[in-house]
Design a binder for these strands. Structure first.
Lengths: 207, 207
DNA sequence: ATTAAATATGAGCAATTACTCGTAATTTGG
DNA sequence: CCAAATTACGAGTAATTGCTCATATTTAAT
């Protein structure tokens, strides 16, 4: 799509009043993007839902895409912190691999169940504005690196290349969770799905 | 996006001349969608690239979405035939599981390497026009059912629920291949990726 | 050769929409 | 209390674009 747009905020909110405005816009955008998709969502609609004027919206976001990037960054950050926290609060020397894996997978699934559409918008738009999403991918890579270190720590895990393994694990879980919530397969419960995923990833890490 | 559009051809080409026209449109659409994304692609642009008038395009496709659906169906059909053929031409009683898995994964990867962007357009748009993509998903489900039967045949495979297993296997391979070609991770070759995938899926099926 | 059906054309319309800019209201600092 | 800075407003615009339709051309049928 050949985009070369600024994605940084046109202006940073300084007063409490404007910080509230920006937050309203973000909340509204979350709903509208999820409901209508990226192309279907209009900036006017977002502003309306946020209860602010279209002019105010463009004071803080230079364009539509910048709004989505903000959403994406927030999402990845929240997810990253939650998941790494989950791993960190467990003793990796003593805990069985499955006991770490299952909550990890469950949490990822819930993260996607919460707002499946929004995730899809973020994922699909990311392709067409690679530079804009650089920051998002940087966060993701950072997460993978962290996980790679963790893998090295766990006694049950034996992989040649922990970076490669972390990449496979993260994206297997992320993408299959996506798939599952977007096109729920007939005759497979959430619990069943989680167990299959535990088997898939557990078997891969522990050989 | 609340779409309720007809997606079936407005008119079926009867003469050789028009069949050629339709084929030109499909080829052009493949390129233009891949290059610009769904929203970025314009029907006028597609017609132009195809070397036909915009009027001709709308004689055979009721709207832009119908063009994408046609592309998607074709893609799934080709991929399905290729992959099932790959499995079919091997003797599952004697062949080692890995010997079936590796070419399967390689072929899937190549399928995506060929036109990564187009795949993404299809995937991401599918969410916003569920009914339109019904036919596409029917084809996918059919493929999973077929694979489930095959899994039951292979002696090395031992899974509780072959339907579930087929679902996991197909989507793990498909989605990770996507991920890999769209955001190639630094420091991981195609070969390395394939081997990791063989380990992932092989370990899951053979326990 | 004549008619009817199929196919091709493309100018232009109707609708949508991202975004601007001049102005007004509110808050802050001194 | 006042001036400067910040924030809010929203009507309007410029550009885009999916799609129609009246007309022309080509092919098939008799």
């Amino acid at each position: 799509m050949a985009r070369k747009k600024r994605i940084n905020p046109r202006k940073s909110p300084a007063q409490e009043r404007s910080r509230f405005t920006v937050e309203q816009i973000i909340q509204a955008a979350t709903q509208v993007f999820a409901e209508w998709g990226y192309a279907g969502a209009t900036t006017n609609h977002i502003a309306e839902r946020a209860g602010v004027s279209i002019g105010s919206l463009y004071q803080y976001f230079p364009n539509k895409e910048a709004i989505l990037v903000t959403l994406a960054k927030r999402h990845v950050e929240i997810a990253g912190n939650l998941l790494m926290g989950l791993v960190a609060e467990r003793n990796l020397i003593e805990t069985d691999l499955t006991e770490v894996l299952r909550p990890f997978i469950q949490a990822t699934l819930e993260l996607h169940t919460g707002n499946p559409r929004l995730n899809y918008v973020i994922l699909s738009e990311a392709v067409w504005s690679a530079e804009a999403m650089e920051q998002v991918h940087a966060l993701e890579d950072q997460f993978i690196d962290q996980l790679a270190l963790t893998l090295d720590t766990h006694r049950q895990v034996s992989v040649k290349n922990s970076r490669h393994a972390a990449y496979i694990v993260v994206h297997a879980i992320k993408n299959l969770a996506h798939e599952f919530v977007i096109h729920p397969p007939a005759g497979m419960s959430e619990e069943a799905f989680v167990e299959e995923m535990v088997a898939l990833v557990g078997g891969y890490l522990n050989r």
